[in-house]
Write a protein that binds this DNA or RNA. Structure first.
Lengths: 119, 119
DNA sequence: TGCAAATATTCGATTATTCATATACACGAA
DNA sequence: TTCGTGTATATGAATAATCGAATATTTGCA
């Protein structure tokens, strides 16, 4: 596979790599939403939501449609919903480790110089 | 959905969000590989490969097995293969746009102050 | 026209990621 | 033990991502 394609893939994953953007995409599973609906449901600042939507838009992960004052966003391809569902399955399958991972991240934030456990 | 799940998903995507790591995972589809095999096939510096493998290991995306001097890496869970397969389907489906996106990125690098097209 | 609502963009400070370099560690053979 | 090979980690500089605050833009309505 050419490196250009890998960079494209990496770009998509990068766009998915933020909890807020994942939350936004989950909301859009149920269909189109306006920016203010997204802000309301997720308790986001408008500017912040707009920034994250811009990231998703630039990668063509979502599409927008303007109607009067409102901009409706929706998921462009249901494959991405499937991906998020698979990830939930993965998470549940490895729930114990997943929790440990999140805990570890918290600890790293508190004590940044502690070492990884030996295997 | 709890925010912990979103952070977990985001963390996995973050780990996938690098061309080199994608290349490494692709190599591992065929089965276990040692670090030096990976370096050789992808023309990576050993330290760089090790750094990327550490990222994948910390998210439990790959597992390692030591045999003498060698460390064999492999994909941990076939669900992640499924995710990668779904993403490949997505990429192929949108290949044309993908190319346009990559082209756009090149142009942005050359002329960083040009604006996004209006919709 | 002027105003208000909805959305988008810019800016600056902060934090995170990445790479190369150097160094450390672990193992097997001598 | 010492050496050589394979792998991992530490460090620091460069780059990129993030957030909040401020500002723009677009639209509908008076």
């Amino acid at each position: 596979m050419p490196d250009s394609l890998r960079r494209f893939k990496a770009g998509i994953f990068q766009a998915l790599a933020h909890p807020t953007r994942i939350a936004i995409l989950e909301q859009m599973k149920g269909g189109e939403l306006t920016v203010s609906q997204i802000c309301e449901r997720l308790a986001l600042e408008q500017a912040n939501a707009s920034q994250h939507l811009a990231v998703l838009r630039h990668k063509n992960i979502v599409v927008s449609r303007k109607e009067g004052n409102l901009v409706f966003y929706s998921l462009r391809d249901p494959i991405l919903s499937q991906v998020l569902d698979l990830m939930r399955e993965y998470f549940q399958k490895h729930l114990q480790e997943a929790m440990a991972l999140l805990q570890e991240e918290r600890e790293v934030r508190s004590y940044p110089h502690r070492k990884e456990a030996r295997r």
